[in-house]
Amino acid sequence: MRIGAFSEQFGLSPETIRYYVNKGLLCPMIKNDRYDFKENDIDDMQLLLRLKSFKFSIVEIHRLLSLRRLSGFDSPNELSDYINILVDHKKKLQREKRELQGIISLLQDEIGSSSGKHSFNAKRKNGVPLQFLQYLACPSCKENLSLSNCSIEKDQILSVR
């Protein structure tokens, strides 16, 4: 089977298949300077995709594919080694999950405390306390602010017309 048909069978681009070949994850035969994928390549690709879905790294996938190519997981010891690798990886993912849950919890706390700050700031009024009026000046001429034809009601200065 040529690379186009092989990549189509797995819903991947030919470039992705070439990447896997270059990394040694797939080892197709070469005929007339073209890849020729056989049944064992299909088996390797299925395992590769399964391991990838389990979040194994490319290096780990390469090791597991090599182990299967060499042993075929035929003996109980080889199959046991494979199962132990899967169990260890599961434990690693469970640790990462706990760490991520802790980070998510901290983020939620930060969101909650930041939201509280936002609602506090929304209630806060903007402006200048009346006691500071004597320090205000015109930005253009630098003259002190003078108030005429105005009234002060509660916390606002209103013009009187």
Rank of each mutant, 00 (worst) to 15 (best):
C27S: 08
C27R: 10
P28V: 06
P28Q: 03
M29H: 14
I30V: 15
I30D: 00
K31H: 07
N32W: 10
D33W: 11
R34Y: 15
R34S: 10
R34E: 14
Y35F: 14
D36S: 10
N40S: 14
I42A: 00
I42Q: 01
Q46P: 01
L47K: 00
L49K: 04
R50S: 10
S53K: 09
F54A: 10
F54S: 07
F56W: 05
F56G: 01
S57A: 08
I58T: 04
V59D: 00
L64D: 01
L65D: 01
S66M: 13
L67I: 03
R68E: 11
R68Y: 14
R69S: 08
L70R: 08
L70N: 09
L70G: 08
F73G: 00
D74Y: 13
D74V: 13
S75G: 04
N77Q: 10
E78L: 15
E78C: 13
N84M: 14
N84D: 14
V87T: 09
V87Q: 05
D88A: 13
H89T: 00
H89V: 02
H89Y: 03
K91Q: 10
K92I: 15
Q94V: 15
Q94C: 07
E99Y: 12
L100T: 08
I103Y: 05
L107F: 08
Q108G: 07
D109M: 12
I111H: 06
S119N: 07
S119C: 09
S119K: 10
N121V: 08
A122S: 09
R124F: 06
K125G: 05
G127M: 06
G127K: 02
V128K: 03
P129A: 04
Q131M: 10
Q131E: 09
F132M: 07
F132C: 02
L133P: 01
Y135H: 02
Y135Q: 04
L136Q: 05
A137E: 13
C138H: 01
P139L: 07
P139Y: 08
S140F: 10
S146C: 13
L147V: 13
